[in-house]
Design a protein around this nucleic acid. Structure first.
Lengths: 148, 148
DNA sequence: TCAAATTCAATTGCTTGCAATCAAATTATA
DNA sequence: TATAATTTGATTGCAAGCAATTGAATTTGA
């Protein structure tokens, strides 16, 4: 590559990743609005639909989000009545989030969403799974170094 | 796929896209801090380094961002002295952003960044270019429909 | 020619996203 | 057992990101 082109937008992996992520999330919005969820709230609910109950720490590890993002988001979901927040008996530092009945019921209404969004993607199925594989490979990046 | 697994985090393309995008942007931060730029400011500067001068509208189309995001961002870059903002003579509605000397000079300091970030990715070169290709295919999604 | 429609940027208001910091609880170790 | 280090979640402050709205400039077309 011409060294003058190194800084062109189109020559960097990060930009299409960032742009595609936002564009795809935008595709979820109209479907999620009916459920009164944002995309981040939706993926949080997905973990709860799978686990039923989860600590903030575990949630953060699963979603690659920190407590600064999760705390207000979980409070919001609690206000909406989809989950309860309470401290663990065994370790009072640990805060657990647990599905309510309403949160559990919401799952049924979310079931058709993946197919609805997936069907309008301009990718062949094998391209989608290759993309999927490469993204998970990329996610295996080492976590940031801290100077201990 | 078991229909019960449709809502699992790991079965959706959007989640790894969203997570990988944020993780990769995090990789840029330490390098960009030295230039007093955030990631979004950086990609804005990349367009300016390429074009020299660009309207808010064109910038938004290029970056998939709207004026609500770009207006404060461009004002910030103007405060830092990297660009000037002024209205077009031909059409007073159009606001143009133009590189200053300082903005032009900043390019030299940004040149090594792509290689620095790229070198720590856990992808083979051919995987990276395949990922790149698939992301641009995905970005060819139709823009959102508006009900005219 | 002039009123309506369109285009464009700015503004408002809300939700992330995250670094930095703080406080509380627990664990390790002297 | 003191006390130091670690873990954990909350809080704070700032920068996106974007929908909705506004207001000014321009274009369209009757």
């Amino acid at each position: 590559m011409d060294p003058n082109d190194v800084l062109k937008l189109e020559n960097q992996l990060c930009f299409p990743l960032y742009a595609a992520s936002r564009q795809l999330i935008k595709r979820y919005r109209p479907h999620l609005e009916a459920l009164d969820l944002t995309y981040t709230q939706y993926i949080t609910m997905m973990v709860l639909w799978e686990e039923g109950r989860v600590s903030v720490k575990a949630l953060g590890q699963r979603l690659y989000l920190d407590s600064g993002t999760l705390t207000p988001l979980l409070k919001q979901l609690e206000r909406k009545g989809y989950l309860r927040r309470f401290r663990s008996r065994e370790d009072e530092r640990v805060l657990l989030a647990e599905l309510t009945e309403a949160g559990q019921a919401l799952r049924e209404r979310a079931l058709p969403i993946p197919a609805q969004v997936g069907s309008c993607l301009p990718l062949e199925p094998e391209e989608a799974s290759e993309l999927y594989r490469l993204l998970y490979r990329l996610l295996r990046m080492e976590p940031e170094q801290n100077d201990t």
